[in-house]
Design a binder for these strands. Sequence first.
RNA 1: GCUCGAGUGGUGGAAUUGGUAGACACGUUGGACUUAAAAUCCAAUGAGCAGUAAUGUUCGUGCGGGUUCAAGUCCCGCCUCGAGUACCA
Length: 936
Amino acid sequence: MRYNFLEIEKKWQHFWKINQTYKVSLSSKPKLYVLDMFPYPSGAGLHVGHPLGYIASDIYSRYKRHKGFNVLHPQGYDSFGLPAEQYAIKTGQHPKKTTSENINMYRKQLDRIGFSFDWSREIRTSDPNYYKWTQWIFTLMFNSFYCSKEKKAKSIDVLIDSFNNNGDKDYQDDLKPLGYTFSKSQWNSFDEKLKSEILMNFRLAYLTNGDVNWCEELGTVLANDEIINGVSERGGYPVTKKVVKHWCLRISKYSERLLNDLDKIEWPEPLKEMQRNWIGKSKGVSITFQVENSNRQIEVFTTRPDTIFGVSFLTIAPEYEDTSELSSSNNKSSIKKYISEVSKKTERDRLTDVKTVSGVFSGSYAIHPFNGKRIPIWISDYVIASYGTGAVMGVPAGDQRDFDFAKKFQIDIPNIFKNIDISKAAFSDKFGFTLINSDILNEMDYSTSLDLIIKEIENRGIGKSKIQYKLRDAIFSRQRYWGEPIPIYYKDGIPKNIDLDNLPLKLPEVDNFLPTKNGDSPLGNSKKWAWNENIKKVDLNENINNVDTFPLELNTMPGWAGSSWYFYRYMDPTNDKGFVSKDSQDYWSDIDVYFGGSEHATGHLLYSRFYQKFLYDFKFLNKIEYAKKLINQGMILGNSAFIYRNPLTSEYFSSDLTSEIKLDKIRIDIKYVKGENEVDLEMLQNEDKDFNESIFKTKNQKFLCVREQEKMSKSKFNVVNPDEICNQYGADTLRMYEMFLGPIEQSKPWDTRGISGVHSFLKKFWNLFFNEDGIKLSDEEPSKESLKTLHKTIKKVSEDIERLSLNTCISSFMICINELSSINCNNKHILEKLLILISPFAPHFAEELWSQIGNNKSIVNEIYPEYIEKYLVESEKTYPVSFNGKTKFTINLSLDLNKNEIQEAVLSSEKTKSFLNNSNPKKIIIVPGKIINIVI
RNA sequence: GCUCGAGUGGUGGAAUUGGUAGACACGUUGGACUUAAAAUCCAAUGAGCAGUAAUGUUCGUGCGGGUUCAAGUCCCGCCUCGAGUACCA
């Protein structure tokens, strides 16, 4: 019987669907939660790179089911956000429509690969029943603050109570830097607006007016992690700074916990490192400088207070709040000009322009707190307003940026390092120096001077130790249509949250959902977007009298709002009393293995950890981290093809032609390449409009192209569609081949030619079950040889799945089937156990043969075969015998022999004698069961 | 610049604790079957040298050094590639 994969796969996919084979519920069995990062359905469809992680997680899930676990393995769609909306805009349709179409297409493609997802738990972040809880969490954040003493989030009511009863007493440390001091009675006399303003400084979801990353092309604000190399991650559009009123999440309060708890999870080290860098903890000191002839002070942050005697200027950021106050009258216009120039720079310019030093003198001076020297205050964009205090002390001797700045503006460069030449560059090492010209610190090294100066600074009350983080609060507002509405309305300009009972606040229908260049939100186009505290959402078209309507927030949430907590919704997807029930959470607990790409390191994977900790603080969750283990699957690289063109004559050249002119590199669709690297010019000219007018160098010349491997992407014309592979070889072959390519965490090139090896393996396996008459298995006692092969494979495959080394599993299967084929094994006991072993990898294949050999139940819950050691016990070992570490020959010896007996046997062998050539060995090293090494 | 990875045949990769480097597969070459092709099966396949051959022998895991009886694996110093990040004081 032939291996008819198309028919088999269709049959079993249908079987699994109607029998709900993969549906799980709470049970007394041990649980396991295996999750993939859910996709955003983009419209381009799947290519073979997408399912790589899904296949690995599916194999792992299926294996664990065989091992007796109740496995939660769900899937859903991250269907709100920029990718979905950009696709809708591009195709001129409503995002709701395109999103559901794309989801259907994704689902069809996913189903063909035979995943064991429990689709009854499917979630979509754009579903109101889902985003109700996304809004609910936001509201909880709005009504919370971070208690610095207890290091956890608490209800904002705790803070209000304290203000009501004690004034600022309990929170002076937080209020003073903000400029607020008040007694109990003062607080109670404040109007609601002022109270709201003060509280806004504490809320974990807060409204603020400040500089944001503005992307005009996308018509929205972006978070830091959505900008790559100074342009938007989506589309690659320029980003500038703009002052906009926007919502933020106070994630920075969780910096320390986000950093420390990384040690508690088994995530890839490079990814943890990325998060650590992004959080960017540094220890330092803040020091206050008095401004000359003024009662103003400038506070700087530095990690090198030991270099304080090398200060020759201060620099403040252009956005620093008091720049105008500091500027003397004759400098005012040049300062204004400089500041406006800086604000016009795009993020990209700022990045590429790092080498250009710019700045302007403010006209004011500060007084050095130790030696009383006059220190000029400068303004420059090399200082970032949002980091530290927005002001730095310039120590040109010890910091390259300060050095460059001082050189450019001819500021003093006092040397404070003994016998170190700083004429060409600053000296920024923390070792190998002693200080000079440094008053009390003279002749001291780094650590001694550091300890002393910190003590001195604190004793004199001019500063204190401080820990600084790079992590900024997350900008939460998006001026876009396709996202969760932020459930806030404005009563007399004061933001109020919508009662939890009234969630979800559903996205309104609008005539026009396109973003605007000036940043007005599309939700403003709705006539129904207003709130009344009694009648709730108001339709402004209706004639409503005597009803106070309040404007609703026009911004929507970013894409990561819905993805920051979705893994809990799978546990209990239809619950309308809470985002997850206690029972479900107690049972499923957390994710055991989470599969996804490392590109989410500083986005989704950081935000979701923050959400986790926030919800943990309120005991809505009982773990401080949500995923014990994370696997970053690598990319599958596609083959891209390029040809070269002379930019002047538009002639095309074969790639091996050397030319003195710099040739343009033109990307062509890989389908025009035949064989290794020959371009089918006729096809290219016929099909590709761009190439019609092109002049080719010679008509009958062969055109060669250059190939490069890069990330698979539709725009690079190098995608391979999994459907095509399924049609030609079947899903089981696709699954096994993707795993066979290499370790999952590694990037690896796709080469469809290699797939035949895996496919013929399955055919070979299949053929063991059949002869000309049909199924033909023997029921006899299996041979020793076949038992050894089977148990060797059980051991190797199960160990390899446990450590997620799936490529080597495939090799073991191939070795196993090669061995069984060579002895023509058709033993039922052996083969049926092998079917269970292969079932996680090739589920359709395994189900079909399982039923053909007479089972009427699905194979998916069969118990995994036990590995029995006795079948593997060897009595002999082929020892490699090496001389001076180089293997010369092998010798078969019983494993029962001890060292002396082995030595005797080896030395008496003729071969040894010939290598020794009558000399005596200096030393003989014998590792029983491993090697024999003779030193001569 | 800084941080973190990774360099093994023509290709993808294997070698889990230092112990026969190159498993498994692709590709290539030769052969069988066939009128022919496809499919299938068999054999060879790291490089060099010697030999008709069996075989022998040297080199070989990015480069240079070291530790060890023994190094792809450990240590030191470089080179190259990839990823992340970037005026973070």
